[in-house]
Computed example of a mutant assay.
Amino acid sequence: MRRRTITMVTAVLVLAGCSSGTTAGEDANETLPAAGTSTGASASEEASADDPLLLAYDLAGMEPTEIIEHLDALGGAERPADLMASVRVDELLLSDASGELTLALPEDRFYLSVAPYVDQTHECFYHSLTTCQGELTGEAVEVTVLDDAGDVILNEERTTAENGFVGMWLPRDVEGTVRITADGRTGEVPFSTGDDGATCLTTLQLA
């Protein structure tokens, strides 16, 4: 189900899951305010493929999963500067000065984006597709995702995007470990794809 919510511009500010860069060792997993928080009234209506917000950023006709993959692959000047896009457990929140659009995600899939780092990282919980920036861009990495039973969910050779992240679709309601190896360095962090799971992991340090 898609729904469009017209809110005050202040709602845009709470969608970003990432802050400015911080040095390693600082808290990089802070929970952020709920999306769509606003002191103003709101109204809802069904969103359609020709929704003005989707049209404005050439996203019309894309499924929510396709929008996530498209935006997460961009970096630098290619990113739409006026668009905020926050990946939550079960929905994608899009927002600009005109309002906010909420798109439902598949019930059985969870999008997790991981930014491996060596020296510098940043705080993140819900992944922001248009503002998050990781340290390592265009880096060849080996990604292994294991569940708590030790079974392999994913094992792939990937390249970090221009935003320094590796995005992956995982099954819902799973806990386990993400392990990434790059240039002889390896790091791993726990993850959860449950209702309280983070869609953005920036605590995986390569050493």
Rank of each mutant, 00 (worst) to 15 (best):
Ile180Asp: 03
Gln133Asn: 12
Gly134Lys: 04
Asn155Gln: 13
Asn163Glu: 00
Ala161Phe: 02
Pro190Asp: 13
Phe165Gln: 05
Arg179Trp: 05
Thr177Trp: 09
Arg158Asn: 05
Glu123Leu: 07
Gln120Ala: 09
Gln120Leu: 11
Gln133Ala: 12
Thr160Glu: 02
Leu129Arg: 10
Glu142Thr: 14
Thr181Asn: 02
Thr121Gly: 00
Ser128Ala: 14
Glu175Gln: 12
Leu129Ala: 11
Gly176Phe: 02
Val114Phe: 03
Tyr126Cys: 12
Asn163Ser: 11
Gly184Asn: 07
Glu142Ser: 15
Ala161His: 01
Asn163Tyr: 04
Val152Met: 08
Val114Pro: 03
Asp183Ala: 15
Val141Lys: 04
Val141Met: 06
Asp148Cys: 06
Ala161Asp: 01
Asn163Gly: 01
Thr144Gln: 15
Val143Ser: 03
Asp183Gln: 15
Pro171Glu: 08
Thr121Pro: 02
Asp147Phe: 01
His122Gln: 13
Ala115Val: 01
Thr144Glu: 14
Thr177Ile: 10
Asn163Pro: 04
Gly134Asn: 04
Val152Glu: 14
Leu129Thr: 10
Gly150Val: 08
Glu162Thr: 02
Tyr126Ala: 14
Ser128Gln: 11
Ala161Tyr: 04
Arg179Phe: 00
Glu123His: 10
Thr160Asp: 03
Gly184Ile: 05
Pro190Gln: 12
Tyr117Gln: 03
Phe125His: 15
Leu136Pro: 04
Met168Ala: 13
Met168Val: 13
Ala140Thr: 14
Asp151Trp: 02
Val166Asp: 01
Val178Cys: 01
Arg185Trp: 06
Thr131Asp: 09
Pro171Gly: 09
Val145His: 09
Gly184Thr: 06
Ile153Phe: 04
Cys124Met: 10
Arg172Glu: 05
Leu129Pro: 08
Asp148Met: 11
Ile153Gly: 04
Trp169Asn: 07
Gly138Tyr: 04
Thr121His: 11
Asp151Asn: 13
Cys132Leu: 13
Gln120Met: 10
Glu157Leu: 09
Thr186Arg: 10
His127Ala: 14
Leu129Val: 11
Glu162Phe: 03
Thr177Leu: 10
Ala140Asp: 13
Val178Ala: 05
Ala182Ser: 15
Ala115Ile: 05
Arg158Glu: 10
Val141Ile: 15
Asp173Asn: 15
Ala161Thr: 08
Val174Trp: 01
Thr131Arg: 14
Gly176Lys: 01
Gly176His: 05
Leu154Met: 11
Gln133Asp: 12
Asp173His: 11
Asn163Cys: 07
Tyr126Lys: 15
Asp119Ser: 14
Gly176Ala: 02
Val145Glu: 08
Asn155Leu: 09
Asp173Thr: 03
Thr121Gln: 04
Glu156Trp: 03
Val152Thr: 15
Gly134Glu: 02
Val114Ala: 02
